[in-house]
Design a protein around this nucleic acid. Structure first.
Lengths: 247, 247
DNA sequence: AAGTGGTCTAGACCACCCT
DNA sequence: GGGTGGTCTAGACCACTTT
């Protein structure tokens, strides 16, 4: 186990791999201290900065933890913790090998309903852009999306832009603020008749309910709505611990 | 905007904050190049290594992206992407200000049912530890957990250890292998009569279904089961983009 | 006092990109 | 060829922990 300085793999990465193998094979067990940075530096013929880079990579991956003045220790794997990632719909479907498409069901200006006005911090009845879309995977409906968006600019709504563009881009086009962050809440729900019809399933079927609020950089909400994902075709898979913070 | 070297806040962090403010206030907009590392180094009186540390922090947070030979650019925020974290039950409830507890409903050795045997890669009928638990928040059932665990050591099952210990520790106690990683899948489902009774809700209510497989370091599965979370009391909130990879 | 990790510097060489 | 980010070094000082 030593560093090959002629390799294309940089030394900091080689050392990280060596230590990772040693941890996973039980040379160092949870709670054990790793050799000090000075020792690793001497043993592998690397500068301390380089050793530290290896260690910080392992720390980001959750394998080790450093304690000031004390040392570096192997972490206990966090098995009761799960991280789920919901990617943008097209990417998500593409990674499952499905071809995705979007069907626009409705897009018009409406007076904001009470709840939408509240969420968008607008006076009730303000004109907002209301959009209903079907998100399809291999031609079959996978999700049903309904959103209320601020509509400051008075630009005409072009049907084709709604079919293909992601929501953040639609907000940019039709509202003055450009969205900077979003808050999402994931719940479960039973589909009512309208929702079930849109998703081609029976009323009362279970589904994921993803509530989304788009927020501008000045903190103002610029979009709000929900997206329903069919419970029989959609699931979330946990991200492996080691990949949670970069590999 | 300059670096205060007498501050307790280290220079690399001060520079990261300066650049973050400039990005969020629109000085640099998505797609724009940041000044080169050499320029930042000169402007703020820091070595290039320190400047790079600031930049790599912003890159981990997703605010910027570096391109070899070209420069560093402001990223477009990924608003259609969400990250959800399900922490260990006690921690999760504690962070919501609820006091959690666990009630053991059943714990006995049973011949592994076909599906459990398959998931645990054991011959059908092998004796496994079957556990049913209620996870309570402020005394009300929040989740209903059923697990099959390998049982290699023949140790007696102590009731009190099942009430309070997390599953990984139970596996360690009763199986030969110590679990090293877990895979989880999150789905939605409708509760049957037994499940509804355990959760104090009506049959047919929607719920989160979290399937969990515990895997030993040698790759062998050591535990499998599901945990049902009440749909009316449980929800997942997205992690802010900037905190997804360290703050 | 000795050992540890945390931070910083002023150089260096490299591969990559553009002109 | 000149600019860019990616990597590495051999020192240095600091705060913290343990002896």
């Amino acid at each position: 186990m030593s560093i090959d300085k002629s390799s294309f793999v940089p030394p900091y990465y080689q050392l990280a791999q060596i230590l990772e193998r040693q941890i996973k094979s039980g040379v160092y067990r949870p709670g054990d201290p790793l050799p000090s940075e000075a020792e690793l530096s001497e043993k592998y013929g690397l500068s301390r900065m380089t050793v530290r880079r290896s260690l910080s990579q392992l720390a980001r991956a959750g394998l080790i933890r450093t304690e000031k003045g004390k040392g570096t220790f192997v972490s206990r794997p966090q098995l009761d913790r799960a991280v789920f990632v919901m990617d943008e719909f097209h990417k998500e479907m593409a990674s499952r090998g499905l071809t995705s498409s979007v069907r626009l069901l409705e897009a018009r200006l409406v007076p904001a309903p009470e709840k939408a006005a509240k969420k968008l911090q607008l006076p009730p009845g303000t004109k907002v852009l209301y959009i209903r879309r079907s998100l399809l995977a291999d031609g079959e409906p996978m999700a049903y999306d309904r959103k209320y968006l601020r509509y400051d600019r008075g630009r005409p709504i072009l049907e084709n832009e709604l079919q293909y563009q992601a929501l953040p881009e639609m907000v940019e086009k039709h509202a003055e603020a450009l969205p900077a962050s979003s808050k999402m809440v994931l719940q479960v729900t039973l589909l009512n008749e309208e929702e079930a019809r849109a998703l081609h399933v029976a009323p009362g079927s279970p589904a994921f309910l993803l509530e989304q609020i788009l927020v501008a950089s000045d903190g103002r909400p610029v979009g709000w709505g929900w997206c329903l994902y069919r419970g029989d075709r959609y699931q979330l898979t946990s991200v492996p611990e080691a990949l949670q913070n970069l590999g």
